[in-house]
Nucleic acid binder design. Structure first.
Lengths: 207, 207
DNA sequence: TAGATTGTTAATCGATTAACAATC
DNA sequence: TAGATTGTTAATCGATTAACAATC
């Protein structure tokens, strides 16, 4: 049974999982909430609460069983079948994502990338086949891709997003600084690097 | 006078500014809250509230004066002097940031980047001088750099963060998936790409 | 005036933290 | 037992949204 979880808890589960995996590799079998918390700059209470929300229980003496907890987190955030992802726009950021993400999650797989530059299309980039962008809709549909990552230039972001939506995509991760609008059955996540830097600058200035 | 603003408002001010700039370039002189909202996928009320918080006032007939609003936002989020930034780790992500950010904000300037690879050091990358990483502390101090962007491999993230802190940096933007901990007078912002994708995947699965 | 807009307070919603009972 | 831990509710904090007065 999968409970309805707050957005922030989902983010932390993703982080817990990676920490737990590396603990497991170091041979640890159990972990206390305060240990997990200190590896993540958050509090033991929050860790316990998140773990409570996903319905896992620990033991008073030894804390949480790492293997069990990993499995439970997997049940929650992984999909049963592999979720296919397409990345559009193989500039530097696109390439960085392609090479960085590959292999990080066995249930989420970037299966195609697209670009307009004929020097890129036809090759494999970071191990992923690069297709010409005019085939975007066709291939996305055919491959049943459900998530699109947008790393195209700002001025084409909306058009590309619309193509992805027409092709039946269910979620978009938008790295451009263009704001796109999507129908409400489509999940949209945006990240803007310039805003991040400006935010850091603001709080640096005010401290 | 600069009021104390919520973190989310700061993020939106950064976004408003870019939208407003492009409106200005198109020759618009005034904008209504609902127009600004629809360009950003948020609500007119929130726009008005944010603008209220920074102490700007609009007119009932014409909405907000774009130029005035731009100036006011600048007063709030820009620093008086140029804020210097260093980027450490010139991989693909680092390069993407260097070339993308340059010129986006006149008050925040990436003045140096660092890498361990001798093929990169000594050159300019995206217009920014690349120094050998063993000079990190010395140059950061000398140049009075106040923000560090971390795009190094995970395994050296903590060490590099500590060097930056020793060199007197005031804020860190951490793009690695390593969690670093900093003294509380240092502002830390983290972005993790894998978490973002996993989050999109979760909500796609649950819709 | 009627309609569209801004400005602002109060209510609601969501997320974190405090408090503490239960247990080994 | 004393001390350390988990699990959970209630309180608090922060952010968004609803409601509406004021104005052109």
């Amino acid at each position: 049974m999968i409970p309805n979880l707050p957005s922030k808890t989902i983010e932390r589960l993703s982080q817990y999982r990676r920490i737990l995996s590396s603990c497991k590799e170091q041979g640890k079998t159990h972990i206390y909430s305060h240990e997990l918390a200190s590896l993540l700059n958050n509090t033991a209470v929050q860790v316990r609460r998140d773990i409570m929300l996903i319905g896992h229980v620990g033991t008073l003496r030894k804390g949480y069983d790492i293997l069990e907890l990993l499995n439970r987190i997997g049940e929650i955030i992984d999909s049963e079948d592999v979720l296919k992802v397409a990345l559009v726009g193989v500039g530097k950021l696109g390439e960085a994502i392609l090479s960085y993400f590959t292999g990080k999650n066995t249930k989420i797989k970037i299966v195609a990338c697209f670009d307009v530059d004929p020097n890129k299309t036809g090759k494999e980039i970071g191990g992923i086949k690069c297709y010409p962008q005019y085939n975007l809709k066709e291939i996305t549909k055919r491959e049943n891709i459900s998530i699109g990552i947008l790393t195209v230039p700002n001025n084409v972001a909306s058009d590309v997003a619309n193509l992805l939506i027409e092709a039946g995509i269910k979620g978009i991760l938008n790295y451009t600084s263009t704001h796109i609008s999507v129908p409400e059955n489509i999940y949209l996540e945006k990240y803007d690097m310039v805003t991040s830097i400006e935010k850091v600058a603001y709080f640096v200035k005010h401290s």
